[in-house]
Design a protein around this nucleic acid. Structure first.
Lengths: 207, 207
DNA sequence: TTGTGTGAAACTTTTCACAGCC
DNA sequence: GGCTGTGAAAAGTTTCACACAA
């Protein structure tokens, strides 16, 4: 059996979201690969192949049970467990992520925020306390935080990451447009907002 | 000659950023594919192959001129032209994007913002006026806006997009976690923040 | 008949490896 | 010797197409 690609995992997230919507809508208890793929600009073949990496979830002639496939994908993505997350940098982006509904709805729990600004620390935002970087070790240990989001400025990002790594953080989602150096034990994923826009400007510039 | 993939275009953005940093650092006027790739966890073969889609930019035995490759990639990505952009939805995410330095530094110019909230409209933020959706047609035409960013809630996203499409917008970058329906004339790109996190939870759940 | 699961084919992307210029 | 540019091989991904189960 083969290992699913990163793109397959990203599409699994899309399937999950679509299934959650279908589940709320309650139109039918099952859906076919064609029906589900039509919601997403993905071919039904690809959807079936994506699921194939993880097992057999459908019934021939019938399709997939929406509830059961939803739960299965949720489990595959590791969302049957509650994840504790911290956000580093409480500027606009950090605040946006803290307020983002898509996190809470899954098992993604923002447990703490960190900021370097003395004016912000020990204040609460959206029910979460903002701590100074000095408290990081204590908070990450006591709240069992495994994932960190970097929403800090480029200049501060590497320093924060070094601290996170020394706190044995397991994964980092980085929004700062800078290459971070981390120990190979830590899983790092970068999201670069200008890259997404450059894809559009490139496309619009094509003849 | 073949067409570059979307991943190639995304990597081109990374090369551009690295070259801009090298240009500021002024350490040497040239860099090899190995040197540049080392900054980015990309193989030098892949970097050379990515550039191969667009032409010949280096000199054998020497490497690439940092200044000239930087300008060339900038041109390839369509950044030699100034792009006017609007942000729809001035919550935390919209404000974060408005303040994002990575845009202004390229030729990405945020010309207007839109919001439905009467308390926000006709106020300024970061030097940019926030307009009501009713003004969209006028503003987009008069400011020659070609790209829109959706930072609005899921419930409002499709309505806003319909308006944008009727204003002949050329491309949309969507941050709302919902499948948008647009005319095929409009280039749509989606960024889903929870998908990025799910990639991490999936990875951490692997044995 | 409907619609999954999956080998096999087709296509795409990455890596190898080296000829040829600096 | 150093390093690019690029065919060719290898690896990976998507699509085809159909046996088979409901």
């Amino acid at each position: 059996m083969k290992k699913p690609s990163r793109d397959t995992i990203s599409r699994m997230s899309l399937y999950l979201r679509a299934l959650q919507e279908l589940s709320k809508a309650q139109a039918s208890p099952t859906i076919s690969s064609l029906g589900l793929s039509r919601e997403l600009n993905i071919s039904p073949d690809q959807l079936r192949r994506d699921l194939w990496y993880f097992g057999q979830f459908g019934r021939r002639g019938v399709g997939y049970s929406i509830e059961s496939l939803k739960n299965k994908i949720s489990e595959i993505l590791g969302l049957n467990k509650r994840w504790n997350i911290c956000i580093c940098g409480m500027g606009n982006l950090g605040s946006a992520l803290l307020a983002y509904k898509g996190f809470k709805e899954q098992n993604l729990n923002i447990s703490a925020c960190f900021d370097a600004d003395p004016k912000k620390i020990y204040k609460k935002k959206g029910g979460i306390t903002i701590y100074p970087l000095e408290d990081m070790k204590n908070i990450i240990r006591s709240s069992r935080i495994e994932i960190a989001i970097i929403a800090a400025p480029v200049t501060a990002a590497q320093t924060i990451v070094d601290r996170l790594v020394s706190c044995d953080i397991k994964a980092i989602l980085n929004f700062a447009p800078v290459k971070l150096i981390v120990s190979p034990k830590v899983k790092l994923r970068n999201v670069d907002l200008s890259t997404e826009l450059f894809n559009l400007t490139y496309f619009l510039s094509q003849p």
